[in-house]
């Protein structure tokens, strides 16, 4: 991907020049420290870009269908509860998240709470992002803040009563949300834990691939076992290793290759929303990370759950 260095180095240099002309000595001292800070920021941006890809932020927060600007929001997200419109998450101070502190950003992802204290609807997968490490969240913010800002106002959601009552989300959270950073399983390998983190925290695969109850809570007993009414009313297949109804015939090579190319065993190439996930997210990851995700997914309990369109 594009290197962030030139962009971030420029403002730092401008600041340095100004300081040096006024306080030569102080400027000289700062000159030693500032490049280090700029470098640290550049590193954070670089790491953040990978997190951004792995967490697949762009598709939901960009109205690609209507040629909307990156992260400026406005993408319609139809759900059984109504149509949500994703918000602008560029660093624009008025319409976006430009005024957010690191703490605000962390709270949004970990707790599903906005800086003004209101609760997000779980169409925003904070339920998965809560598992992200502090470092990854900070890096992600650094990357998003390095991108161009867009002054586009948010569109109000189009959801019916009573689901539009945000305070009800408090109750929803009590029922269906567990807050907290991912805790590695010491009994499992580093690769397995990496795969779990990528799949559950960043990739938020379960959000679409786990069936939901009438209130939109995920059915933990059928984790990743597919959903008949996934996003945009489309089916999300069972991706547990169940022989007959899931992907039990696949091995980690098959699954990692699917995440890279979209091609499934037998030759079909997935389309629709998963094609977007592959294009924007999983195809940009390293081979090692894709393999880790594949091994983790194939280690999950096989759930007998046939996903078929009602005829």
């Amino acid at each position: 991907m594009k290197d962030g260095d030139p962009m971030t180095a420029t403002p730092a240099n401008v600041v340095l020049k100004g300081l040096a002309s006024v306080f030569a000595i102080a400027g000289a001292m700062l000159a030693a420290a500032a490049p280090a800070a700029a470098q640290a920021n550049a590193d954070a941006i670089k790491r953040g870009e990978y997190i951004f890809r792995a967490a697949d932020c762009a598709p939901c927060h960009t109205d690609t269908k209507n040629k909307g600007a990156l992260l400026a929001g406005g993408r319609a997200l139809p759900t059984p509860f109504g149509t949500f419109y994703s918000p602008n998450i560029t660093a624009d101070p008025v319409n976006g998240i430009g005024k957010w502190s690191d703490g605000d950003f962390t709270r949004a992802l970990r707790e599903g709470v906005s800086p003004d204290g209101s609760h997000y609807f779980p169409v925003f997968p904070y339920t998965s992002f809560t598992l992200m490490t502090d470092q990854d969240i900070k890096d992600l913010k650094a990357y998003i803040f390095s991108l161009p800002t867009v002054a586009l106002a948010n569109k109000p959601h189009d959801i019916g009563f009573p689901f539009n009552l945000r305070f009800l989300q408090v109750g929803w959270k009590m029922l269906f949300f567990t807050e907290g950073v991912y805790k590695p399983d010491p009994a499992k390998s580093a690769e397995w834990n990496r795969g779990a983190y990528l799949t559950e925290a960043l990739g938020h695969c379960a959000e679409c691939h786990t069936p939901r109850n009438l209130l939109g809570g995920m059915d933990r007993s059928r984790w990743m076992a597919g959903s008949i009414d996934g996003p945009e009313g489309e089916m999300a297949p069972n991706i547990t290793p169940h022989e007959a109804t899931g992907i039990g015939e696949w091995d980690d090579i098959d699954l990692a290759y699917m995440l890279k190319t979209g091609a499934v065993p037998g030759g079909d190439v997935v389309g629709s929303l998963m094609a977007e996930v592959i294009r924007e997210s999983t195809s940009k990851l390293t081979d090692a990370d894709r393999t880790a995700m594949a091994k983790y997914l194939l280690s999950l309990p096989a759930v007998d759950h046939k996903i078929e369109k009602p005829r």
């Binding site: 489309e234 190319t261 979209g262 091609a263 190439v269 997935v270 389309g271 629709s272 977007e276």
Partner: peptide
Amino acid sequence: TQQACGGCHETFRSR
């Protein structure tokens, strides 16, 4: 080539 398949399926084929 597979990506060309997927590129079309993404927009023009439903699940």
